[in-house]
Amino acid sequence: MNIFRLTGDLSHLAAIIILLLKIWKSRSCAGISGKSQILFAIVFTTRYLDLLSTFISLYNSCMKVIYIGCAYATVYMIYMKFRATYDGNHDSFRVEFLVVPVGGLAVLINHDFSFMEILWTFSIYLESVAILPQLFMISKTGEAETITTHYLFCLGLYRALYIFNWVWRFYFEGFFDLIAIVAGVVQTILYCDFFYLYVTKVLKGKKLSLPA
């Protein structure tokens, strides 16, 4: 464990909690892409199946349980509890265009052609593009609530910090996992446009609105 990975995990946890509280307190999921949240629930489910078979550490197991629990709670609130506030018209990204190629890629490019390894690889690839429906929805509505931008900032920051974690682990442990690194870099690049808007607008107290 190193400082980049710890702050990355905490940033990820913060993002998940921010979103959950935003929906719960405002009793609304307006502006939130339910499709992205379903993809994240799939990412955690396919990646954390080893919860049942391998004990790495209390931290590792607790965080996995929290991530999975919050992901499904968020999906439940979007599609069940507060479904009246779900903006399905703007959440129109075709996720099959993500899941199918990612599934094919996971079967073709992986570290080991085993069931668990392919599932893990699938979850890594899927996570790198899972935010696209959310970013697409913001581009369609042309705006995002400030709390939603804080959620996205923490979510983008988590994988950016993981990149520093991989650099750290390469130099101090000689460990590197090319699949996780390439997917993590792609994932972080997808946020760059948003990071620019967040820094130049939201941090200056303006609302995030895109030229429609």
Binding site: H12, D50, T54, N60, Y67, H111, D112, W120, N165, A180
Partner: peptide, 10 residues
């Protein structure tokens, strides 16, 4: 490639 990738990252 069957390196032992320890999956200790979240």
């Amino acid at each position: 490639m069957d390196e032992d990738f320890d999956k200790d990252e979240l």
